[in-house]
């Protein structure tokens, strides 16, 4: 069975000029993410993981290569990040190490905000947010502000927010780093479920070795390049090829 990738990163490069030196934060990376796939990105600090996430998430433009969404190229050198904001809102959900919730909004409002920004009426947005949070086990915490939630609860609210628009792609940067092992595992299991049930493609940058068994694929970065790809699935989808994970 061959399916089209949601996200395709092709020969993506991000080079910075620092005086006379060129820093190659990302150096010719190619990468696909398919619907329902949970992909882990691992590697030492400074290996280019987060840079890859910024480029894949349309938060930075590559200095070389391109990023395609569902077959359409949306980001390439010289493009406009500002012009991608609407696209990002509809297509990508983000989860970070810190939940980054808006502190003056309740859990439900944080989630509903994403929908309201997308012109969903307030009542419908609120209802959807409540259902989403209830599904993530936060039905009793709807009207609590972030300061009244535990780290794990905050992270689940952040995941609910990322899912609010039902985006086909979820990008997470060290989402379990601030959590203990039990809660970290719970969050990773949540990602696994979301990938399976919603058929969203999920990319997680992680240092947490305890949950690596949940990933479909592990892509290892070093010095801005992909150095290894490990396929955990019994039957791999598209075959790995040099430069394309």
């Amino acid at each position: 069975m061959t399916r089209s990738p949601i996200l395709s990163v092709r020969d993506a490069a991000r080079h910075y000029q620092s005086g006379e030196t060129v820093i190659r934060a990302l150096d010719g990376v190619s990468f696909d993410v398919f619907p329902g796939e949970l992909v882990g990105i691992v590697g030492p600090s400074g290996s280019g993981k987060s840079t890859m996430l910024l480029i894949a998430g349309l938060l930075e433009l590559p200095t070389g290569g391109c990023v395609a969404f569902e077959g359409e190229i949306v980001s390439r050198p010289g493009g406009s990040i500002a012009g991608l904001r609407d696209f990002r809102r509809r297509k990508i959900g983000f989860v970070f190490q810190k939940a980054n919730l808006i502190p003056f909004l309740t859990a439900a409002e944080n989630v509903a905000l994403v929908l309201q920004i997308d012109d969903v009426p307030a009542a419908a947005a609120r209802l959807h947010a409540e259902r989403l949070l209830a599904a993530l086990g936060l039905g009793e915490r709807l009207d609590n502000r972030p300061a009244r939630l535990s780290g794990g609860e905050q992270q689940r609210v952040a995941i609910a927010r990322a899912l609010a628009n039902d985006p086909p792609l979820l990008l997470a940067d060290e989402p379990t780093a601030a959590l203990d092992s039990v809660r970290g595992r719970q969050v990773m299991e949540l990602f696994r479920t979301i990938a399976d049930v919603r058929q969203a493609g999920i990319v997680v940058v992680t240092h947490d070795n305890r949950s690596l068994d949940l990933f479909d694929r592990l892509v290892e970065f070093s010095d801005g390049r992909i150095v290894a790809v490990t396929d955990n699935r019994p039957a791999a989808r598209p075959a790995s090829r040099p430069g394309a994970a």
């Binding site: 904001r85 609407d86 809102r89 983000f94 808006i102 905000l113 994403v114 997308d118």
Partner: peptide, 9 residues
């Protein structure tokens, strides 16, 4: 910045 990230106009 968060509002911009989630696509707020």
């Amino acid at each position: 910045a968060m509002l911009k990230l989630i696509g707020a106009r």
